[in-house]
Each structure stands twice: as structure tokens, then as C-alpha cells.
Amino acid sequence: MPDTDGTVPDMSDHQNEFEFEQLREGQHVGALDLTQLSRADARFILRGATLARLTDFLSVNPLAAIRIGPLESGRLAGRYQPQTRVLELNTRRAGSTFGSQARPGQVAAVSAWGQTKRAAMQMSFVHELGHHLLETHPSAFGLSLAARQPEVKPISYRARVERQEYFCESLVAYTFFANELTRHDPIGHTMIETLHAALRREAHDRNQSQP
């Protein structure tokens, strides 16, 4: 993804996978189905919840299941099913869905800026967590109405589809490309900043109420 000076931010996988935080089955998610992945790739992708600062939220609003495996179409990065709280990611995603050099506002989806498939899958995981937030967190729905402001500049084509997609794409951009989001769409950046402030207050209140 070209930055303002024409360079491309380094999105290669530098992290040591054995130091990655991993969601805990029974605490953040009811069941994990990761049979299609190596241990290292699974830990890398699931660390997206930590990078997005959503682990405390998931402790209170856990997913029923996370399933990472082949889905019916290579163009489908993932999906969230609100009725069942099941989140799925596609291991068969097409090569055209990552490694993009498109500029902000012209990229198909923020996850396309991932320079490897697993980096893109980590970003798609955060995107789908955004849908879980919209279904379960009281303030997320109201915050997503920022998409209706005439001054918004959606970070991706997908963010233009509807307010839910605007919210989820802004969450991914804030997590992985905060500077680009600030420059391109300050409204989206403020929306996610406000979300995180609300999540911090709630976590603080829960900690204060514990004996």
C-alpha cells in the first residue's frame, strides 16, 4: 500500500509466532476449529483480537465458535453469523485478495493490504470481529452511524457498501494502518477511538466492581 511518500509500509511477518497471544477456548470463544492451519499460522491470525484490543470485550461477549478452513469461494475472506455467533475465515482465499498496492479509498478491502495470505487473514479476522461488536456492543451501532456523515471518506471500496462495512473496515484500518486512516478519513479514526474509549471505561468499571 503506497504511503504518502510513495513507499510501501512493511507488512511482512516479523513477529515471533511463539510469542503470540492466543484466544482461550472457553473464555473468549466456545470452540476453536483450526484443523486446516499450522499452529504458527493459527496463533498469528488469532492474535488479531489482541492487536485490535478486543480480548477484554470477548471475555464478556464471547464468540460461540471460530472456524478457519476452506469456504465455498476464494473471493470470500470470511463471515460472521449473528444468530449463532460463529466466525469463519477462509483458507482458500484467492491470491487477488492480498498483496494490493492500491491507495486508501481505492483498495477493495483493507485486508488486501496484507502482503501475505496469513497477514490478510489476520486483518479479515479483525473485520469479522467488528461485525460481532455491532451485534453485541450497545455503542457500536450508534457509532457506525458516522458512515452517514457527508464528510466521510471510506478507506476501501468495501467500506462504501453500508455503515456496518464502514465500521468494520475502519476498525481494521485503525488496528493495522492508523496513520493512513487518520490522514484519509479522520471521521472513521475518531469513530474507532471513541469505541476503544468506551471499551476501556467498561473494563475499568468491571475491575472496580470486583471484590
Rank of each mutant, 00 (worst) to 15 (best):
E135I: 00
H132C: 13
L134W: 13
H137M: 01
F141S: 07
F44R: 12
A146M: 01
R158P: 01
F167P: 11
Q208V: 10
L71R: 15
L195D: 08
F98M: 05
R39K: 12
P211N: 09
P9G: 08
R75G: 11
R183V: 02
T136M: 00
R103N: 06
H127G: 02
R93L: 13
Y174E: 02
Y80G: 13
S38F: 03
E21Y: 03
R163S: 07
N61K: 11
G78T: 14
R93T: 13
E128R: 00
P9N: 13
A40E: 14
G6E: 11
V161P: 01
F57I: 03
G69V: 01
I66L: 12
V152N: 09
E21R: 08
E180K: 10
A140Y: 12
F167T: 09
R103P: 00
L76R: 07
A42E: 06
P211H: 13
D185M: 09
A108K: 03
G99Q: 14
F57V: 06
T50H: 15
E128Q: 15
E17G: 01
S170Q: 04
Q164N: 15
N90H: 05
L133R: 06
A109L: 11
F167M: 07
G30T: 13
L181P: 07
S139K: 13
R67L: 06
S100P: 06
N207C: 01
H14K: 09
L181R: 04
V107A: 15
A159T: 09
T50V: 10
S139H: 12
A64L: 08
S38R: 11
D5H: 11
A108P: 01
H14M: 12
R93I: 14
E180I: 05
I45H: 08
